[in-house]
């Protein structure tokens, strides 16, 4: 079982990213669950979303307490949220920031866990013209999680995005470009 926790702010697309990643894993034959934590739903408020991935059917239906990977879509969340809570000793944390992994590792006071960083906000701005970091983070996650290939992710995300943005193909292309860039640029 592989478990992921997404930290974001309302409007950043944490839930959508969790669903897209789960879908992409399903397309490769894996079992998955993707779900958000429902608290107050407001733009900008801290939100959580989760993925559970497995090669065998999943029957567990509780929250995720000890994730293998934590993803932080907004680095300012580190100031107010305990983003490393429950992260496995050999777990990985992926942060959307222009800072280096070693800087973030010191900042978070992490010991055994690996830290990865990628400037997803800048990538999103340049590829999409909007600072929505969720899709680039999918690219970076794919690189560090090693569950599916970049091609698997792009193939499935494209189908899902094309459904959602039928009339605006440039949004689909921008998202795919941002996934590829973050996959290449993630550091750690």
């Amino acid at each position: 079982m592989f478990e992921i926790r997404w930290h974001g702010r309302g409007g950043q697309g944490a839930k959508t990213a969790a669903l897209l990643f789960g879908n992409a894993c399903m397309a490769t034959g894996k079992y998955f669950q993707a779900f958000p934590e429902y608290g107050p739903e407001r733009m900008g408020a801290p939100v959580l979303a989760f993925d559970r991935l497995s090669d065998t059917p999943i029957t567990i239906h509780c929250g995720i307490e000890t994730p293998d990977v934590v993803i932080v879509l907004d680095p300012t969340l580190i100031e107010t949220q305990n983003v490393k809570q429950g992260l496995k000793k050999d777990g990985k944390i992926l942060i959307n920031t222009a800072e280096s992994p070693s800087f973030m590792k010191d900042k978070l006071g992490l010991d055994t866990q690996k830290v990865f960083t990628v400037d997803a906000s800048t990538i999103a701005k340049e590829c999409l013209g909007k600072e929505i970091p969720n899709t680039p983070m999918l690219g970076a996650l794919t690189k560090i999680a090693g569950l599916i290939s970049l091609d698997d992710l792009i193939k499935d995300s494209k189908v899902k995005l094309e459904k959602k943005f039928r009339r605006t193909p440039e949004i689909v292309e921008g998202n795919i470009a941002s996934i590829k860039r973050a996959y290449e640029e993630v550091k750690g």
């Binding site: 669950q33 993707a34 779900f35 429902y38």
Partner: peptide, 12 residues
């Protein structure tokens, strides 16, 4: 089915 736990959880 169970609210949120299942109603809002995506699976295959």
């Amino acid at each position: 089915l169970d609210g949120f736990i299942i109603s809002h959880c995506m699976q295959g």
